[in-house]
Computed example of a mutant assay.
Amino acid sequence: MTLTQAAFGADTFTKKTLLVLGGSLFIALAAQVSVPFFPVPMTLQTLAILIVGLSFGARLGAVTVLAYLAEGAAGLPVFANMGAGLPYMMGPTAGFLLGFVAMAYVAGLAAGRGMVAMLVAAFVAAALIYLPGLAWPLGVAQATGVEAGWAGLSFDKVLGAFATPFLLGDAVKAVLAALAVAGGMKFFAK
């Protein structure tokens, strides 16, 4: 049983729709809590995505992130620093944005499975976003025709700009997400 099932009862289409809309809004609000780094800002998006995945389950969590990305692609200012639109989605954060879907799905695989499983899943999911997140500036962006100062950097420079400053924060967010959802499960178990 997921946290949302414990809190709201059996799943219905209407409940799932409202959860997707509410979850995408939660992620959008978390994206606005931003610490300016260059070229990628540090936000609370990943914390919100982990919470959504751990609370909603794998499929509904991934659908929620897809809805969030669709909202941004449609021009709603849901990304960090009120970013929106396809040009924003092709910027330096493109790989991370795509990785968010997998992050929610992997975290959601442990939904309702206990604190240890959720913690492990949160760490794995947090690490997983670095695969597309780093692949994008390492060469995928250039291969798709993106020309920017951050595209095609050396591996060392990409690690220094896109990974190293965020590792500790992502580990802390993984722990916080697992603790928050496990606490919610305990609350609703009573």
Rank of each mutant, 00 (worst) to 15 (best):
155 F>N: 10
31 A>N: 02
76 L>A: 12
103 M>S: 05
116 V>D: 12
145 G>F: 03
62 A>M: 07
134 L>H: 03
170 D>E: 15
81 N>W: 04
153 L>P: 00
72 G>E: 02
102 A>M: 13
5 Q>G: 00
21 L>Q: 05
107 A>G: 05
84 A>R: 08
55 S>K: 13
157 K>I: 02
68 Y>C: 04
45 Q>G: 05
6 A>R: 15
73 A>S: 08
135 A>V: 01
127 A>G: 15
159 L>E: 07
15 K>T: 08
114 G>F: 10
113 R>H: 13
159 L>T: 07
50 L>F: 06
180 A>R: 05
36 P>M: 13
12 T>N: 11
156 D>M: 14
10 A>M: 07
169 G>C: 01
98 L>T: 03
128 L>Y: 07
180 A>G: 02
152 G>V: 09
124 V>P: 02
185 M>I: 13
140 V>R: 09
190 K>Y: 02
147 E>N: 14
2 T>R: 07
157 K>S: 14
46 T>G: 10
33 V>L: 09
99 G>A: 10
126 A>S: 15
141 A>Y: 04
87 P>D: 13
16 K>V: 01
22 G>N: 03
13 F>T: 15
91 G>W: 05
179 L>Q: 10
131 L>C: 05
30 A>Y: 00
168 L>N: 02
151 A>C: 08
3 L>E: 06
61 G>M: 02
32 Q>H: 00
168 L>T: 13
120 V>M: 13
19 L>Q: 15
147 E>W: 00
180 A>Y: 01
90 M>G: 12
